[in-house]
């Protein structure tokens, strides 16, 4: 484990905690895309099928459990919590899941490292994670006022992806035979989707004004 990987995982963890903090303490999910959260729950459910078959480390297993547990509980909160669900922007969050899920599944069936159930599902989760943020970005663009916690949540998610790229560069030079084209390309695509958001995030931070994405 290198410093970039650890920093990436911690940023990812922080993003989830920020979102849970908003939902649990403020009892609001305004500006949060349920579509994106459902896609993440699916990403983790399909990626971590190996949680019962392969043991890598205690750290690995614990983190997997946290990401699975948090993503499903966030979905539960937005859908079913008596108070939280009332703040959900249903009319604005209209992105259709299947437009992302079906192409990712087809791609995973044709482009993968090994044709086994677990491996295809794992590859599907990589492709889906790369684009899962799109409903959230669309929602942010429609929401005129983005609150601090939602902005930080998206920023931390983007930072996590960026740090993983540094982790791969580091591993490429330090570990023999560390070549994972599918992971790398999906990861770079995912990070690029945040480029526009990052630009406006830093602008608003620099000028000390509320974050707003242009329509």
């Amino acid at each position: 484990m290198n410093i970039f990987r650890l920093a990436g995982d911690m940023t990812h963890l922080a993003s989830v905690l920020v979102l849970l903090l908003k939902i649990h303490t403020i009892k609001s999910c305004a500006g949060v895309s349920l579509k994106t959260q459902e896609l993440y729950a699916l990403v983790f459910a399909t990626r971590y099928l190996d949680i019962v078959t392969d043991f890598i480390s205690v750290y690995n297993t614990v983190m997997k459990l946290i990401f699975l547990g948090s993503s499903f509980s966030i979905v539960w909160y937005i859908r079913h919590h008596r108070v939280v669900r009332r703040s959900y922007d249903k009319d604005q969050d209209t992105f259709r899941h299947y437009l992302l899920m079906i192409p990712c599944m087809l791609l995973a069936l044709f482009v993968h490292e090994k044709f086994t159930f677990k491996e295809v599902m794992w590859t599907f989760s990589l492709y889906l994670e790369a684009v899962a943020i799109l409903p959230q970005l669309v929602l942010l663009q429609r929401t005129r006022n983005i609150d601090n916690l939602t902005g930080q949540y998206v920023f931390l998610l983007g930072a996590y992806r960026g740090l993983y790229i540094f982790n791969w560069i580091y591993r490429y030079f330090t570990e023999p035979h560390f070549v994972h084209w599918i992971t790398w390309i999906a990861g770079v695509v995912q990070t690029l989707l945040y480029a526009d958001f990052f630009y406006y995030y830093f602008e608003s931070w620099k000028n000390n004004v509320r974050l707003q994405l242009p329509a």
Binding site: R5, D9, H12, D50, D54, I56, S57, N60, M63, K64, F67, E113, K114, W122, Y164, N167, H177, F178, V179, T183
Partner: peptide, 10 residues
């Protein structure tokens, strides 16, 4: 190349 223990990243 494949890693012996499967995927070690999250």
């Amino acid at each position: 190349m494949e890693q012996p223990q499967g995927h070690d990243e999250l």
